[in-house]
Amino acid sequence: MATIRTPAVAGLFYPANPQCLLENIGCLLSSAQVSRCLPKVLIVPHAGYIYSGVVAASAYVTLKLIAECVRRVVLLGPAHRTFLHGLALPREAIFATPLGQVKVDATAAEKIARLPQVSINSSVHALEHSLEVQLPFLQSILEDFSILPVVVGRASVDEVSDVLDCVWGGEETLIIISSDLSHYLPYAAAQREDNKTAASILELHQEIDHTHACGATPINALMAVARKHCLIPHLLDLRNSGDTAGSTDRVVGYGAFAFMSQDVPKRTGYAS
């Protein structure tokens, strides 16, 4: 029998009731501004939906026209709960959410598990929210897909870039980098810092550190791989918790970005 990674933050970061969760995500997606981007890679925040859900939705709504093509989602997010050297895959074969189960891509997992920087570590995944909160959005939009969930700890940019290169794939593969931006600055200071970080991402500069984004290492790795694959980054939304829910005294920044191939044709009927 396949082992299952059960939800750790259902009822905390997002609704545990399936119907409430679907309604929550439906409202977030319906209010998101539609972009013309047809992404290969998304950078998406990972806070509770009340805080960053509207920003995450601006990224996920871009998947609606490519949903039928995507069969594998590579998820990279930072380790929050457990110290980790390198990168970690789960031992579990299935990730569960209130909306059902998603299979881990065993073939892709076996492929990157051969890399020396990648370990199998279920304890790192057990309570980690940065990947889990992305799954209900994906389940609400995509049809038949598997995931490759990778938690990133203390690793070099080259080590993460090697993993991305290994599973880059074609149009069947979507890559998601899970990251929030600045943490616990006053509202105006957070805006200044997050605008600088967004500008660096849009210019594909590998100069982001962990005070700018908790997922700095996978973001910097993406910058290198994006240049190699001639991807064009687009800013979809940039806000902080002072804009969405909570005080403006100490806020957390959230950004959504889509990376699109120069070769992807624009599709008609996709409203601007």
Rank of each mutant, 00 (worst) to 15 (best):
K111H: 12
I112Y: 12
Q117D: 08
Q117H: 11
S119E: 04
S122L: 09
A126V: 11
A126E: 14
E132C: 03
F137I: 01
S140W: 03
S140E: 11
S140R: 15
I141S: 06
E143S: 09
E143H: 13
E143C: 01
D144R: 14
D144L: 05
S146F: 00
I147H: 04
I147R: 04
I147A: 02
V150N: 03
V151W: 03
V152W: 09
G153E: 02
R154L: 12
S156L: 00
V157N: 02
V157G: 02
D162R: 08
V167G: 06
W168I: 02
W168V: 01
G169E: 05
G169I: 01
E171I: 06
I175H: 15
I176Q: 02
I177M: 01
I177N: 02
S178G: 00
S179T: 10
S179I: 01
Y184G: 01
Y184L: 13
L185F: 08
P186V: 01
P186I: 07
A189E: 15
A190S: 15
Q191P: 06
Q191V: 13
E193L: 15
D194N: 12
A198N: 03
A198D: 08
A199D: 13
A199V: 02
E203F: 03
E203S: 15
L204K: 08
H210K: 14
C214L: 09
G215E: 00
T217D: 08
P218S: 11
N220V: 05
N220K: 09
A221L: 04
A221I: 07
L222V: 03
L222C: 06
V225Y: 03
A226E: 07
K228A: 14
K228T: 08
K228N: 10
C230A: 11
C230Q: 13
I232N: 04
H234P: 01
L236D: 11
L236A: 05
D237C: 07
R239D: 02
G242T: 03
D243E: 05
D243M: 10
A245L: 11
